[in-house]
Amino acid sequence: MRVVIAEDQVLLRAGLARLLTDAGMEVVGEAGDAPDLIRKVAAHRPDVAIVDVQMPPDQTDDGLRAAIAIRRDHPETGVLVLSQFSDERYALDLIGDDATGVGYLLKDRVADLDAFADAVARVAGGGSALDPEIVALMVGRRRKDDPLDALSPRERDVLTLMAEGKSNQGIADALNVTVTAVEKHVTRIFTKLQLGHEPSEHRRVLAVLALLKAS
């Protein structure tokens, strides 16, 4: 798996590179600012780009804007954004109308090395990885004409964990239920959200998108 890292803090960038290399990934490019990130992705065509939200030249949301541009111009490259902020607006702007190959995690999650490496691999493979704090903010809102109103509390729990990128086994472990029970909940979620005519993995992505659009 080929990775480009964009982070202006040199020590953190070096730490991410070491972590990913130890996890068996190939770091093919490193960038310290948003324009260089765009160049490195165009040159190396990585499987995934890991991007800090705040980067030079403006030190505002340059990294986020570069990540959105990469999703538009290089759809074959997954994008995982790291942020210090629990701001769902950033996540929604990043995801747009396509929840494939995208992730938004708080930087604190990097401390769990195995989980972070798993999130990178999942995004590179076309899945999603959203920070639990961001998902909780989205699910916690009460909205008019919410498409999720048809879901039971347990089905909402399952959809929330799907949005975080967990597999059926991971959901079963988190909820202390069987994988069979999770599969039944997932099937009901697909049915209630009218996602019955797509391959299973694509329906998972569409279900996550339904969660985000309800925010």
Score class of each variant (00 low, 15 high):
Asp131Asn: 00
Lys40Val: 13
Val4Cys: 05
Met162Glu: 09
Asp62Phe: 01
Gly126His: 13
Glu198Gln: 15
Ala121Val: 08
Ile189Met: 10
Leu105Tyr: 02
Asp131Glu: 07
Ala23Tyr: 11
Glu183His: 12
Val53Ser: 01
Val3Asp: 04
Gly140His: 10
Glu30Pro: 03
Asp73Trp: 06
Asp108Trp: 01
Pro199Met: 09
Arg89Lys: 10
His44Asn: 14
Gln194Lys: 15
Leu92Gly: 00
His44Val: 07
Ile70Asn: 11
Asp108Met: 08
Thr100Ser: 12
Val177Met: 15
Leu195Tyr: 01
Ala42Lys: 10
Thr178Ser: 15
Ala91Trp: 00
Thr60His: 11
Glu76Val: 09
Thr178His: 08
Thr21Val: 12
Ser215Asn: 14
Glu155Trp: 03
Asp146Trp: 10
Glu30Ala: 13
Ala17Leu: 05
Leu20Lys: 03
Asp93Pro: 04
Ser128His: 13
Ala181Met: 14
Pro132Gly: 07
Met25Gln: 12
Val208Ala: 02
Lys213Met: 08
Leu193Phe: 01
Ser83Cys: 03
Ala6Met: 02
Asp22Ser: 09
Ala207Gln: 03
Arg13Val: 05
Val110Asn: 04
Ala174His: 04
Met25Ala: 11
Arg45Phe: 06
Ile95Val: 15
Arg141Pro: 04
Ala43Met: 12
Thr60Asp: 14
Lys40Ala: 15
Gln9Leu: 08
Ala34Lys: 01
Ala214Gly: 10
Glu26His: 08
Ala150Trp: 01
Gly78Ala: 04
Tyr104Ala: 05
Ile70Cys: 10
Ala99Pro: 02
Arg154Val: 13
Glu198Tyr: 11
Arg143Ala: 15
Val123Glu: 03
Leu106Ser: 01
Ala49His: 03
Tyr90Thr: 03
Glu198Trp: 11
Gly24Tyr: 10
Val123Ala: 03
Val158Ser: 06
Leu209Val: 04
Leu16Asp: 06
Leu16Gln: 09
Lys107Asp: 01
Val110Ala: 05
Phe85Ile: 00
Ile38Met: 13
Met25His: 11
Leu206Asn: 05
Ala214Lys: 05
Leu94Tyr: 00
Val182His: 04
His185Lys: 02
Thr187Ala: 15
Val179Met: 14
Val10His: 09
His185Arg: 03
Gly15Ile: 04
Val177Leu: 14
Ile70Arg: 04
Ile38Pro: 00
Asn176His: 13
Arg203His: 03
Pro75Asp: 11
Pro153Met: 08
Gly29Leu: 05
Thr100Phe: 08
Asp47Leu: 06
Asp173Cys: 01
Leu159Trp: 02
Glu183Lys: 15
